[in-house]
């Protein structure tokens, strides 16, 4: 009934035999937004890739539960079908594949994997246009090849569009604020806030507090040297902005 949306239990992750995440624990209840902050090299991106199941990020200990089910036995697309979404720090360019048709293909693949019927094209078109408008994404951008020649801000807004269309249970945003000017940051944050829902949780990974002014988290965790070293409310983020990570890194 009331499983947490995400549970990370005593997680250990290695890349090429090198331990990056080491005994990490985290619980994100359904409907909540949690932030993970930490210095460079703390393992923030490793955590996000490990959750998404990227090959090369070897989970050598512990477990990750999504909505009460372990996802360690699932591959990348199966985890996506189970409701895991990762907004990338550096969205990838896909030449020759129109943004909109990528979205449609993704939705159809997810529906197929979940044994659902695929969305009617008319309905899809209406939805994608409405969401794009809200994120100030032009129709031209919908037709262009995915992320090819998009500015940094356009790429991140487009990640928010995918988030809105794919409507995952668990959304992980990896350094979504990097490379964004303040206007783009606001647009993306508003997009995320519109998606907040009792049946959806967010894990916002960021180096800076700035993004958390606009996406206000229920909880903030500090990740250092591969584990959570402190947790608190939204205030913790502001404290970090003042004092920096030095105290945690030393620990």
């Amino acid at each position: 009934m009331s499983n947490p949306m995400l549970e990370v239990c005593d997680l250990a992750v290695e890349i090429g035999g090198k331990r990056i995440i080491n005994g990490m624990n985290l619980v994100v209840p359904a409907g909540e937004v949690h932030a993970i902050m930490g210095p460079n090299g703390a393992g923030k991106s490793t955590l996000s890739y490990a959750m998404a199941g990227r090959p090369g990020y070897d989970i050598v200990g512990g477990d990750i539960l999504l909505d009460g089910q372990s996802i360690l036995g699932l591959d990348v697309s199966e985890r996506a079908a189970a409701g895991m979404f990762l907004a990338l720090q550096y969205p990838v360019e896909i030449p020759g594949v129109a943004n909109m048709s990528f979205l449609k293909t993704a939705l159809e693949s997810l529906a197929k994997a979940r044994g659902q019927e695929k969305q009617a094209t008319v309905e899809f078109m209406r939805q994608v246009k409405a969401e794009a408008r809200a994120l100030q994404i032009s129709e031209d951008m919908l037709r262009r090849p995915l992320n090819v020649g998009f500015s940094g801000g356009e790429k991140k807004r487009n990640e928010a569009l995918q988030l809105a269309m794919l409507a995952p249970k668990m959304a992980v945003l990896d350094e979504t604020d990097s490379g964004l000017d303040i206007d783009a940051l606001k647009i993306v944050a508003e997009g995320v806030n519109r998606m907040r829902d009792p049946a959806r949780s967010f894990l916002v990974i960021t180096h800076y507090q700035r993004l958390l002014d606009y996406i206000v988290p229920d909880q903030v965790h500090v990740l250092a040297a591969g584990k959570i070293v402190a947790s608190g409310g939204a205030d913790l983020a502001r404290e970090l902005e003042e004092s920096g990570y030095a105290a945690y890194e030393a620990a």
Binding site: R54, D75, S77, L86, P91, I94, V97, T105, A113, L166
Partner: peptide, 24 residues
């Protein structure tokens, strides 16, 4: 990875990337 993270199976991802490459 990007395609698969958005829900495409590995085979669907390859097919999509290749058809993008061949689009012209």
């Amino acid at each position: 990875f990007y395609c698969q993270q958005r829900g495409l199976s590995e085979e669907e991802s390859v097919a999509l990337l290749v058809s993008g490459f061949c689009r012209e």
